[in-house]
Amino acid sequence: MGAAMIAGLPLSNRVRDYPESEFRHPLPHEAELTAGVRIEPGRSYGFFTDTTVCIGCKACEVACKEWNNLPADNLGLTGDSYDNTGHLSANTWRHVAFIEQMADRPTEMRPFQSNWLMMSDVCKHCHNPPCMEACPTGALFKTEFDTVVVQQDICNGCGYCVPACPFGVVDLNPLDGKAHKCTLCYDRLKGGLEPACAKSCPTDSIQFGEVADLQQRAAKRLEHLHAVGVPSAYLYGAPDGPGATGGLKYLNAFFLLTDRPEVYNLPEAPTRPSDRVAPSLLSGLAAVAGLAVAAVALFSRRD
């Protein structure tokens, strides 16, 4: 793919091949045109969500619902700022959080987001995904794009992935009895398309690409933000940083945040639940074995 600066944007040279703006046929490797990346099996893909440019338009939420044919849920109003979506669920795979920080005086307001922090939350597609490590049926698996997907023809709704996820993402739908979460648009990736949310994001707050690329892009963006006076910016889910602690390593879908993780409803230092399997099993067995030895002593006593 030849990347060139076209009209100030780093776009693929291929855009010149398509002067029309409406298409009656799918374009081969469309993501090259929309995200500057060719999607090929065997590589790692993910999202870099830069919250400093999010305007809270919820285009990502809508695009996700549309493409994935997800019904509206969480009906009603929450009263919590403009967030009536509430949380990620079996039927909601993108969730825009709204944090109003209006206590500061106007002169102290940050030069972006007008002291509203907005963040489009999504499944993190963890490098070492706890949901997948917990799944006893193998329904949850790593795809050829290094994303984490629930295979609907295998999941039996045991629900064990739900408490395993350190971010409260994956959810059971009691109606169809299966676990659901963001698939990073598995079907679109197979067709060479950029995921629906990233494609629809008008500010490029959600960027889709190869994880290594995105991490570099994020590092540059961070440097820039620090240089222009946003020292609070940091990456959540970058290798071994906040959000990728305790053996998760890194998150394929990571974020640039400007306040503490908890403000965005994210844990600062999540753990990898499977690390607790061995210590727990061994301690339990030791207790039973010890008591069994006591039983041997008791039983072999003559009376």
Partner: peptide, 20 residues
């Protein structure tokens, strides 16, 4: 998509169903 499907009725209305 997964267990969900969109049905267009004869009257032209569209409804979303989830397979129970």
């Amino acid at each position: 998509q997964e267990s969900r499907f969109m049905l267009e009725t004869d009257a032209g209305e569209r409804h979303l169903f989830i397979l129970s």
